[in-house]
């Protein structure tokens, strides 16, 4: 099976992110491989272990390749960095375009593509669906279960929907975005981490993809941030200091009379 996993290095949820100016953020230097992308890598590795084949991790990033190294450390066979100065300022659709173009280039066809449910920086959940659209293949979002029938080239997946679960089937090739619950990503072994840190990462630029600079980057962006804002501030907490059960009565009173919610 030819499996591709789309991965991104993002600020850790614990990193401090602040508005520096209308057009600039200040982000603490604490990065990790997107939580959902590790689940995607694990999904790929599990299938390879079962059916054989190859797992390739793929990122579009001009600077950070740690997500690729994480992929190799976990057991991916190959890692590709799509990088080009013209990609600076790309929105999710442009990222998807670069990824889809690469996947279309491949002489060898793919069977499965995994992405994360969303990247923990832009929280968009767009790149996966957009790649599927560009490749014209079926996709299912936010899966928590996966069963592949390799000979028949068929997949059954479970997807989270509001208020329940949906079971879908589709044919391969297909793209899935992965949600917590699908699996528990393995923690790479020490020797594999060492191997990954030394691994050569293959680089691909726009020319190699046959893309023009105008098709990606800031100018091609379909949406633009006009202004960053700090989150709305909550007033300081009111601690209800009375003893039980008066505190409960006071809380109900405050919710009715001050907050006016119930």
């Amino acid at each position: 099976m030819e499996i591709y996993v789309l991965v991104k290095q993002v600020p850790d949820p614990e990193a401090i992110v602040k508005v520096k100016s209308d057009s600039e953020l200040e982000i603490e230097n604490k990065y990790f491989t997107n939580f959902f992308d590790e689940i995607a890598i694990e999904a790929g590795l599990k299938l390879r272990e079962k059916f054989g084949g190859k797992v390739t991790v793929l990122t579009v990033d001009n600077k950070k390749v740690d997500a690729l190294r994480r992929g190799i450390a976990m057991g991916a066979d190959d890692a590709i960095q799509i990088t080009d100065p013209a990609l600076e300022g790309s929105d999710q659709f442009a990222i998807a375009k670069a990824l889809a173009t690469y996947l279309n280039l491949k002489d060898k066809p793919f069977d499965l593509i995994f992405a994360g449910r969303q990247a923990m920086d832009d929280d968009a959940g767009m790149v996966g669906p957009a790649v599927a659209e560009l490749l014209g293949i079926p996709y299912v979002n936010v899966i928590t279960g996966l069963e592949v029938d390799d000979p028949k080239k068929e997949v059954k997946v479970i997807r989270e929907v509001d208020g329940g679960k949906e079971i879908l089937s589709c044919s391969l090739p297909a793209l899935f975005t992965c949600q917590k619950g699908l699996n528990n990503p393995r923690i790479p072994q020490v020797m594999n981490v060492m191997k990954a840190m030394k691994a050569q990462i293959k680089k691909v630029d726009l020319a190699a993809l046959g893309l023009n600079a105008e098709e990606v980057g800031g100018k091609a962006a379909k949406i633009k941030v006009q202004k960053y804002l700090p989150p709305p501030k909550r007033p300081p907490v009111k601690m209800i200091k009375e003893d039980f059960p008066e505190n409960v009565k006071t809380l109900v009173k405050l919710l009715r009379e001050e907050a006016k919610i119930i």
């Binding site: 992110v17 929280d123 379909k222 633009k224 960053y228 804002l229 989150p231």
Partner: peptide, 18 residues
Amino acid sequence: VAKRPLYGGKVFAEVVFS
């Protein structure tokens, strides 16, 4: 003009469309 949280709500962005 759309307002959306980024980084899990640590900051917000006002976005506009092409």
